[in-house]
Write a protein that binds this DNA or RNA. Sequence first.
DNA 1: CAGCATCCAAGATGATACTG
DNA 2: CAGTATCATCTTGGATGCTG
Lengths: 124, 124
Amino acid sequence: MPDYNYNVYASACPSRIMFDSISNKWTMFILDRLRDQPVRFNQLLREIEGISQKMLSQTLKTLERDGLITRTAFPTVPVTVEYAITPLGQTLSSTVHVLIHWAEHNGDEILAARAAYDAKNKQV
Amino acid sequence: MPDYNYNVYASACPSRIMFDSISNKWTMFILDRLRDQPVRFNQLLREIEGISQKMLSQTLKTLERDGLITRTAFPTVPVTVEYAITPLGQTLSSTVHVLIHWAEHNGDEILAARAAYDAKNKQV
DNA sequence: CAGCATCCAAGATGATACTG
DNA sequence: CAGTATCATCTTGGATGCTG
């Protein structure tokens, strides 16, 4: 028996409170992209296909607030901003990376399962 | 250089298509809950705090369609239905488990980071 | 017990335009 | 370049009531 007596999935515990933040697509993709080196705003915008400027901006702010990434502005003209992962974020990023690559490697198998399911349950 | 030349984050690749499914709270919690043994519908409903019957039903169906879990109905009166994880689901579940427990163990640190951030950026 | 159907409110996200 | 602001939309998900 673990050293806690509350339900892991309960909404009261801190882990649950912030699990919503990390269990979303953009959070994971950004974290994974920052894993190796700092990246600038527009670079992320270009490389993470499908994300809008609004969502990128919003997600980055949340990640910074949660202490998972840092934001550094360089006084160039025009301004340059680099986002980098923190040590804490790095620990999360490793797991996220595994998850993303699981999806990458098993995507086809899942698509096949879907097709089989749909074929079996097709209506008239 | 890896053996693929497309963007991992691109919406075109299969992994991305189904990444939305797995990167959500309920999917992860259900998968994690089924990791050790099969569980019945109402049992899941009770143990995964905060989930509604609708979301549970909906998420279970998606997971079954994706070949990550199986649904078995026993002809008892009233009917009993057990959901169990598949081998494919098991491989995903392991990673998800790490993620959930990351949240569990680092929740406080993140909450602290949030408090610090909010204190520094408080408006007048 | 294990669901499905319907209605509806709230939040998430996209599009567009503007700024330091 | 790196954002913010506003508006419109579109999905998500909760509440409720019904069924085999």
